[in-house]
């Protein structure tokens, strides 16, 4: 009976994952491996193709779900928004990193909302102290977003805009400092993470485990969080045994990734703080400001 309960929990979290996250790993891998026929993504590999890509995406209908605002947009990650317009004539190249960064921010804010909905679907989460729910999201959400980037990436680049665009790693590296430093650590992490070959149902449980971390600073009532996490950890361990019977120590390897993840988030937040100081034109999305203020 206990195993049956754990399997039911796995199914529940997988369903919530499918409900709230528009671009699954299965879809992303199909796009990356060219199995989508005529719907190959548009490739952005230099400034010219970036400009074309912006126009391309603005002409296309972004696939939307009920909970997503219908905005045509360029985005990073699982879909999203392009708040800024194409620059007019001069300064286009100077502004491009900032404009791109703004679109990343808008998409990230939308993704935070998706992760929040997913968190609320974890059994017991909404019964936790509301301040603790906030703390778990504040500390967990960037970790979750970085894990969710992995399926969209390969060693050569990343899918953006719901998988409609592929942006090359070399292009991201060619942006001016410090923008060029933002994605490279995520590529390095993702390429290694992808060798674990998790599928979407494994990912759903792993994301819930990350969210339910009882060691986040400032938690008021740790015990119920740890109890919830323990149950999800059991479900994850069973899931990996059943889904990857030949992958030895996968559970342990996956848990080790959580340590790497914290370092990546710390470095990411420091980069954003640096950007805030050095880029006069940069404004940070209020939701991201809330999350990153006094984070690490």
């Amino acid at each position: 009976p206990e195993a049956a309960d754990l399997r039911a929990l796995s199914r529940h979290l997988y369903e919530a994952y499918l409900k709230y996250f528009p671009l699954t790993k299965a879809k992303a891998r199909a796009i990356l491996s060219g199995k989508t026929g005529d719907n190959a993504p548009f490739v952005i590999h230099d400034m010219k193709s970036l400009m074309e890509g912006e126009q391309f995406i603005n002409c296309k209908q972004i696939p939307t779900q009920e909970h997503q605002p219908q905005t045509s947009a360029l985005s990073v990650g699982h879909g999203g928004l392009m708040g800024a317009h194409l620059g007019s004539e001069c300064n286009i190249l100077d502004a491009v990193e900032l404009r791109f960064f703004h679109s990343c921010q808008s998409r990230s804010a939308e993704a935070v909302r998706e992760v929040t909905e997913f968190a609320k679907s974890i059994p017991g989460f909404i019964n936790l102290d509301l301040n603790d729910q906030v703390t778990l999201l504040k500390y967990g959400v960037i970790e979750v977003l970085i894990i969710m980037m992995a399926p969209l990436m390969n060693k050569d680049g990343t899918l953006i805009a719901y998988g409609q665009i592929f942006m090359t790693r070399e292009f991201l590296k060619s942006l001016r400092k410090p923008f060029c430093q933002m994605m490279e650590p995520k590529f390095e992490f993702s390429v290694k993470f992808n060798t674990l070959e998790l599928d979407d149902s494994d990912m759903a449980l792993f994301l819930a485990v990350i969210i339910l971390s009882g060691d986040r600073p400032g938690l008021l009532n740790v015990k119920p969080i740890e109890q919830l996490q323990e149950t999800v950890l059991h479900a994850l361990e069973l899931q990996l045994k059943l889904n990857h019977p030949d992958s030895l120590q996968l559970f342990a390897k996956l848990l080790q990734k959580m340590t790497d993840l914290r370092q990546i988030v710390t470095d990411h937040v420091h980069l954003i703080q640096l950007l805030k100081k050095t880029e006069v034109d940069m404004c940070l999305h209020p939701l991201l400001q809330e999350i990153m203020k006094d984070l690490y």
């Binding site: 909970h67 605002p69 804010a109 939308e110 909302r113 929040t116 509301l130 999201l137 939701l287 809330e290």
Partner: peptide
Amino acid sequence: KEKHKILHRLLQNSTSPVEL
């Protein structure tokens, strides 16, 4: 609460679209 008002709002509102 004031420091994290958008997160609070996201947590307390159900699935209706939230003005971010």
